[in-house]
């Protein structure tokens, strides 16, 4: 397996804080890779740099063999790199169905086509069925529970048929049943060929689902390996428990 995503010596400085400090890591095609680390270790900052929301102060990001450092998030998305946010960001004024359609990454010419066309509807219906959102398809996203919103945000970024999906804490703040649902969807989508990079604090979730696990501390990678190795690694224990 080759690396689908490469991060090479990326650095980001906020004032005097080196939030990401010469970080390098790779995400292999077809994997479900976890990115863990204590609070403030730079996980979300790194996500923002990879997806083009933040410019890096140094280093390179490559996706599918091309240098994509500093590329616009919208263009990255259309090229197959999607993400979700820590606080399920959906559009509350749009219906569930429209939330999916708006995420399809359509081009200029399609702007002048109907709001929800027949092709859009068909494409969205598959995802609505898969994520069991069909009964609420016509509700406003504002009316969904938090867990459902997380599910919707996840479903929406699949509208563009991505190759790599970055999930930022997919299980934070959702109930145990929803966590299982999320896990099932990630597995089935991974089986269908999508690569995942997941930031997550729920370690049992990570242990069940992810391989390999990458650990960040103070803005750089301190460990990368199988999930059963991570718990015994002295560097990781040190990072989490302090010393």
């Amino acid at each position: 397996m080759s690396a689908l995503l490469g991060v090479d010596a990326v650095t980001k400085v906020f004032g005097g804080v080196r939030a990401v400090d010469g970080c390098s890591l790779e995400v292999a095609e077809g994997s479900v890779t976890a990115l863990v680390g204590p609070n403030g270790s730079g996980k979300t900052t790194l996500f923002n740099i990879i997806t083009g929301y933040l410019g890096a102060d140094g280093g390179r990001v490559t996706f599918a063999g091309r240098d994509v450092t500093g590329r616009d998030p919208g263009r990255l998305y259309r090229d197959g790199l999607s993400r979700t946010f820590q606080q399920a960001r959906v559009f509350p004024q749009l219906s569930v169905l429209e939330n999916l359609v708006v995420a399809a990454g359509y081009g200029w010419t399609r702007l002048f086509t109907p709001r929800v066309g027949r092709a859009d509807r068909e494409r969205a219906d598959e995802l609505l069925d898969e994520f069991r959102l069909a009964p609420v398809a016509d509700l406003l996203a504002a009316e969904l529970s938090y867990g459902q919103r997380k599910l919707l945000e996840f479903a929406a970024v699949l509208m563009s048929s991505p190759r790599l999906v970055l999930l930022d804490e997919p299980t934070a703040g959702v109930n145990p049943v929803m966590i299982e649902t999320m896990e099932r969807h990630i597995r089935s989508r991974n089986a269908a060929g999508i690569t995942f990079l997941i930031v997550e604090h729920d370690m049992t979730f990570v242990m069940r689902l992810c391989d390999p696990v990458i650990v960040l501390d103070a803005g750089r990678q301190i460990f990368s390996g199988r999930p059963d190795e991570v718990q015994n690694n002295p560097l990781v224990l040190d990072a989490y428990l302090g010393g």
Partner: peptide, 10 residues
């Protein structure tokens, strides 16, 4: 920002 990230021609 979210809209830009999902490819909307913002």
């Amino acid at each position: 920002d979210k809209a830009r990230g999902i490819g909307v021609r913002v």
